[in-house]
Amino acid sequence: MDKYKIDARAKLIITLCLSSIAVFIQNVYVLGFTLVAAILIAMLLGAKLLLVLKSFKKMWFIFAIIVIAQSIFTNAGANLITIGNFSFLSTGGLVKGLEFVLRLAVIVISATIITTSSHREIVQGLIQLKVPYEVAFMVLVAIRFLPIFMGEFRDTVTAIQLRGVDIKRIAFKKKLKMYYYIFNPILINSIKKAHKLSVAMEMRAFRAYPKRTSYLVLKMSLRDYFVILSSVFFTVALIVAYYLFLRGGCFESIINYRA
């Protein structure tokens, strides 16, 4: 979808805006609306949403537990299930749980918007946004090394199983120890990799010259400016409006209504 190609910086701003909305706003309707908007934007920019959903397949269980935990500890609205005097599940609690899931979904989907740019473009975008080069470079390294760490993690988990340890059915007390054993090589290897990388970079005169120029320079078009301005404007307006009018307003009074 070449038609909707926009500058990496514009994507960074959109992601920032969407996740700010997700963090600052505690209203199911607004969050639901934001989620729909995030999905539409991500699809327009050609993000691989299905792939992301697939990798979250195994997490549904954890989501469900969080939603239930939120509902148990929030006590508002009409009681749906009570055990003795204790309100186990209430409408207010369910709404809180739903809010949590929506918030998480918005953040994850807005992050996929960035991934539609190449690594190089993202780092260049950060640099041209006046992020120090060292910081931008660290972001790039983190992105690059992630698959390597995943591979090593898989190997380590396999290696300990191949020593005859049944990691699924091991007793709980030993399980904690086993996690310690698994994380040991990963931690040590990453520290060693970081150390080697830093030496290699110094050897190649990283930071030897105060000013770095780049071959790739991003240029913003009119459309990018428009995208950035409108998303910032919309986000600020939404958050201000929310704190002025909606908070403690009509929605809260519906939840707090007790028959």
Binding site: E152, D155, T156, T158, A159, I160, Q161, L162, R163, G164, V165, D166, I167, Y181, I182, N184, P185, I188, N189
Partner: peptide
């Protein structure tokens, strides 16, 4: 077979020793 069952029978040495040393 599960990996841990295979591990009771086969000892596997990975090419890279770093991924299979679990202790300090």
């Amino acid at each position: 077979l599960e990996l841990c069952q295979i591990g009771q029978v086969i000892g596997y040495l990975f090419q890279n020793p770093d991924t299979q040393i679990f202790n300090v």
